[in-house]
Each structure stands twice: as C-alpha cells, then as structure tokens.
Design a protein around this nucleic acid. Structure first.
Lengths: 213, 213
DNA sequence: TCTGTTACTTAACGCTGTTAAGTAAACCTC
DNA sequence: GAGGTTTACTTAACAGCGTTAAGTAACAGA
C-alpha cells in the first residue's frame, strides 16, 4: 500500500466521479443533455480531464450503461434458478421490461440508438457485454424449452423464437419510451399492463400446451 | 398566370429542391449526417436560405418524413377494402414492416426518436399526421374485430390490443434497424421471416378461433 | 418612378466534441 | 538528495454545428 496504490486509487476515484456526474445528468435530462463541458463543470474539472479517463463521449456513456446494466444481469441470474424454462421466460420478460421502464435513458442508448460500430469487444469484458449476455440467457432458455417440446412444432430455430420474444417486449417498452403519454392524441395504456398482455400473447402464440389464462 | 404565380411557383420549386437534397442525404447516410450546411451546399444555396422555407431542421425533416409516409397511408387505404378485419390486420402488419424496413431512416426518425414536443398539430394536416392516422386505422380494425367477437374474451380494450399488436411489429423492425446484422455476435434472422413469425404469434395469441397454421 | 415585398447572402453568435501543447506535482532511480 | 520520467491535469484552440440579425439586390404593384 505504497504511494503507487494511492495514486491509482485516486485515479479510479475521479473516474468514478465522472461516471456519477454523467449518470445523474443522463437519467435526469436524457442523453442529449449530457455534454462533456457540463459533466466537467459539475465535478469542477476541465472538459479535457475527462479525456484522460475515457476515449470519448461515446465510450463514457457506453461504460456507464454497461455498469448499470449489471443490475439486469443480476436479476436474470436469480431467475435462472427457476426450474421450468417457460416460467423462467415469463419472468425474464417481466424483469426486462421493468428494467427498461426504470432506466429509459440507459435503455434508449443501449437498444434504440445505432452505435458507430464499436471495435469488437472494445474493453475487458469481451463478449460478456450485458446485452449480448442477456440475449445468450434468453436464447438458452428458449432452446431448453424447444428441447423439452414445450413450443409449437413450427418453432425449431432457437434464434428465431428468441428474437420474436425479445422483439415483443422490446416493442412495448421502446414505443412507450419514445411516444409514451406526452402530447399525443393516442390514448396510451399503462405499459405494465400492455407488457403483461404482450407476454400472455407471446406465450399463448408460441406454446404447444397453452397455459390456463 | 401573372408573375405572381410564377414567383410562388419558383418558391415552391426551391422548397422541393431542399426536400429532395435532404431526402437523399437522409436515406443514404442516416439522420445524423444531415446538416443544414451540407443540404445547402448540395443545392448551391447558403444555409440561411433553408430557414426561409422551414422553421428549423426538425421541421424540415419532419415534413420530409410526413411526405414520404403517405406511401404507407396509401398502402393502408388499399388494405382497407379487404372485408375480413383479421385478414386486414395481418396485411396491415406486413405493409407496416415492409415500409419500415425499406425506409429505415424515416422510420427511425418517426418512431424511434423522441420529439422535442411539437406544438400540437404544428401545420395544416392537424391530427391527420400519418402516424396518428395509421394508428387510427389499426385501432378501428381492431375494434371491428372485437365487435365481431373474433378475439379472445380478455381483449375488450381496443387501445390495449392495438398497442400490443403495434408493439409486436414495431419491436421486430426497430430491433432490426438498430442492431441488425453488423458486428454483433448475435446471429440475426431475416427480419421478413421473424416478422411473419411474429404476426403468426400475435394472431394465435389474440384470436378466439385460431386460424389454421 | 417610387415604394414595398420577396428571396436570398454575409457575418456572426454560442454551442458542441475533441486535441496539441504546456505545467506542476509526484514518483522512481541513482 | 538530485535528476529525469511519468502522471494528472489545464490552457487555448480548432473545426463543425444550428441558428439569427442585418444587409442586398431584384422584382411587383401603384
């Protein structure tokens, strides 16, 4: 615990302060309100200082989202203990929608914004990024259901079925995030309700033996 | 046909040239590549000239999208002649997804980007904007199906059911637009295929008498 | 011919993300 | 302990953005 450790600990500390400031602005005012200058001002540094901790703005926000998405990964892990793969799917869907609706800014950045093509496993976690990992969990669960013969016979491709299910819940939350409520003439229903309805529809539409309503 | 008409015709002409230039950049390089300065350069005007035809960038692109979305409205109108509301729903879903996949930039701007709160029927068309109108068509068709007792008894709210169906197809195309193919580790299926699968799932999940596969 | 409107340009403002160059302190080595 | 290197940060600037105030030159109508 010489001065070397202290230095790198201090470095990590300002790094965290940058992330925390960015998070606050990010969730409060949305992604377009996050400017490097304002993040810097909030922590009383110059904008340039941030570039010693993050390659650019994209990388900063990406890391922020990745960190915060670990919450979803943990929720998935807990769900993973449920035996019945179909019940597991249902719970995964609910957890996913809950997370999206509670972190709309994060969700928007991760799943509603095209990335400028990140250089393929840009940092440490390799292909363990939360989104890819989350898809892997979904796909595995779907595959388990297929193997158990729980789905209708036309669903043989785990990727296709997983993507249909993902699209269903993604559709609900993304439409809600971008159009929900506000000035629209459309009378938007409670997303938790339509979300549950969607999940029911997806299940009844894909399962061989429909569960009792 | 005095010089007065000629003047306003000329005005309309440069207005169209702005829209055409913007459209070209918009579909080719995506929304973030559209800068006022480059649009102006392409038609050999100064950036300021554009502001004599459009309030700001948002209004320009909005009008562009609205114009181009008339193609979808026309497709919906043709479909409207089909008698069976369920078959009509299916066709509406297919037309919607086709349009989205053929005009990803337009779609992204219209349904995947939060608007800075347009001042409620900002110009002429009032609440006849294509997106609201398209939803009205969908909702009416759903309501017709409900009235005919075609859906499962738990679906009584036309808005809720319409939003579930819309979310289903929106989920497919929006996920495809933002994540499709590219560098991902996920093995993405052909969106036309997953789209059809989604439509089948939605129908089987909502209809009282499931159609033959 | 005069007057007012119209379509456009020039020049600028304030903002953005980003970077080259400089500084001052802390560290390691001799 | 002196010298040199590394580190964390600042200063100052660049190029680009959307947007606007003010000016200009051509044209329309009286």
């Amino acid at each position: 615990m010489g001065p070397r450790e202290r230095r790198s600990r201090e470095r990590e500390e300002t790094r965290s302060r940058i992330l925390d400031a960015a998070r606050e602005m990010f969730v409060q005012d949305g992604i377009e309100a996050v400017t490097m200058r304002e993040i810097a001002k909030r922590i009383e540094y110059t904008p340039t200082a941030i570039y010693h901790h993050f390659r650019d703005k994209q990388a900063l926000i990406e890391e922020l989202c990745l960190i915060d998405f670990r919450g979803l990964a943990q929720a998935f892990q807990k769900i993973g203990r449920i035996e019945d793969p179909i019940e597991r799917l249902r719970r995964i869907g609910l957890a996913y929608m809950d997370y999206a609706l509670e972190h709309p800014s994060h969700y928007r950045f991760m799943f509603m914004t095209p990335k400028p093509l990140l250089p393929a496993s840009s940092f440490g976690i390799s292909d363990g990024e939360p989104d890819t990992h989350a898809y892997a969990v979904l796909r595995a669960t779907v595959a388990e259901g297929i193997a158990q013969g729980r789905f209708r016979p036309e669903f043989t491709d785990a990727d296709e079925l997983a993507q249909v299910l993902w699209s269903g819940v993604h559709g609900i939350v993304s439409l809600q995030i971008v159009k929900g409520g506000k000035g629209e003439h459309i009378c938007w229903c409670d997303p938790r309700e339509t979300g549950r309805a969607m999940l029911d529809v997806l299940m009844r539409g894909t399962l061989r033996t429909p569960t009792a309503a």
